[in-house]
Design a protein around this nucleic acid. Structure first.
Lengths: 247, 247
DNA sequence: CGTGCATTTGACCACCTTCAATAAAGGTGG
DNA sequence: CCACCTTTATTGAAGGTGGTCAAATGCACG
């Protein structure tokens, strides 16, 4: 699979010292950068590459030397782990404001692939960590975001270990509803699912057939409506919530 | 369920300023305290209560106001989440050096219960976070430990979503083997499992019957031997590893 | 319009669960 | 110390949820 990396904006050098590409960033307020003052942001930008990658490309692979940390500016990324025989578990769908690449060892703990075209900020891990001393708020923010990610992982363990297929899909639709609500200004009952049925299955610990069947059931029960395979309309939100939480 | 809380050592006050209970702590080097110098450690101890709790008691419940963070000094704690109808997912077994109580919101994200008798250090969350400014290494250490916890959670998502019962149990035995290896000086092939079959089942996303059956199969295949229900001897470590990773 | 891929639908099957009975372990009180 | 009871673990039989295999449908793209 080929990787299309290209700069979509040059670094701060050679531009007026009071402006940089970050000032206009659409994910600025939802990312770790939100805690930085403008001049601090410019300093962080000095160690940052801004890259674009086409849909369906590998950004990094499990085990690779974890050189970079990535902020998602635009688009959707999946992170996943695999067993030796190819079974895959998607451990997260990431949207603008999210980051990935934090590792507890020298290698990445998961692979990251683009689902849509994406724009990323890429910063060398070591250099970023050194900035924590200079900007303590940044380190605290990364800790906060990691805590939120851990919390999400724990909820997902509950889903994978104890929920039925129907409950899993209802949970998923509601989770994605919150995520897309954050990025776009779409009506609240409208959910955007850029990932394939195969991705959803590997996220929920199911097969594509089971995911497809459960979608059909939810539609027949008039809890949701499918505009197409990528756009879902929520018809009975409260009922979805009840099913997803085992009530 | 009653909670037995009692102080097993008094605070630093009223003792020689160059000594405190932490100096002798058996989990000192494996906990977040490991990054603190002796005098820093004494300052952290000023905001810390040292408590003992008997086996099978609740320490905190999901949704409770997350006032405290707990370090485990001795014993084993399980943390878990529940669905409305009582289905339970254990999201971790914690041993000395581990901490719990970090929350991404005001309430705890999970319940914590003691499996064995335990000794805990309890510190007010707010006061601890203020120490991060004074001791940056402490904040960095908490981030490091949270990263490790997240990494473990991601591995467990792979287990819950994609592994078969046999693979789950092999993974579990190996994971517990590493954990008990860290705390005790037992022979490497000896694994200590203080939790019940019910706990193991709720950790692996199975039923107690399936866990029991898989234990029986592993014994018949001579991959492990059961001394009693709590002590397991690993006979074929490499084979266990292969099974657990889907080879 | 045909090719290729993703998704849906159907039939059958297997792993794990559920239900039930038995066995073993642990705790309590006489 | 042992009888009694409760709890926990094991084992067996039956059943169901979701998986596997296969075919059909839909959709994008050249």
């Amino acid at each position: 699979m080929m990787k299309a990396v290209q700069t979509y904006a040059v670094d701060g050098e050679g531009r007026g010292k009071n402006h940089c590409v970050c000032d206009m960033c659409i994910s600025r307020l939802s990312s770790m950068c939100s805690v930085l003052k403008p001049n601090e942001l410019h300093k962080l930008n000095e160690i940052t590459d801004h890259i674009s990658i086409d849909a369906k490309n590998i950004v990094c692979e499990e085990g690779d030397n974890a050189e970079f940390l990535y902020n998602i500016v635009d688009g959707c990324v999946r992170i996943s782990k695999m067993l030796a025989d190819g079974r895959r578990q998607i451990i997260g769908f990431l949207v603008p404001g999210d980051f990935f690449g934090l590792s507890s060892s020298n290698g990445y703990g998961y692979s990251a692939e683009t689902i849509t075209d994406v724009q990323l900020c890429r910063m060398p891990r070591e250099k970023l960590f050194k900035k924590f001393a200079e900007f303590p708020a940044l380190g605290n923010k990364v800790l906060d975001m990691t805590k939120i990610e851990l919390h999400g992982a724990q909820n997902h363990m509950l889903l994978l270990g104890r929920k039925m297929a129907k409950e899993k899909l209802c949970s998923f639709i509601l989770t994605m509803s919150e995520k897309t609500g954050q990025i776009d200004n779409m009506p609240e009952d409208q959910v955007y699912l850029p990932m394939s049925r195969s991705d959803i299955a590997d996220y929920l610990g199911l097969t594509i057939e089971t995911v497809s069947r459960q979608f059909t059931i939810l539609v027949k029960d008039k809890l949701i409506a499918l505009e197409d395979n990528i756009h879902v309309r929520i018809l009975e939100k409260e009922r979805l919530r009840q099913i997803s939480s085992g009530e």
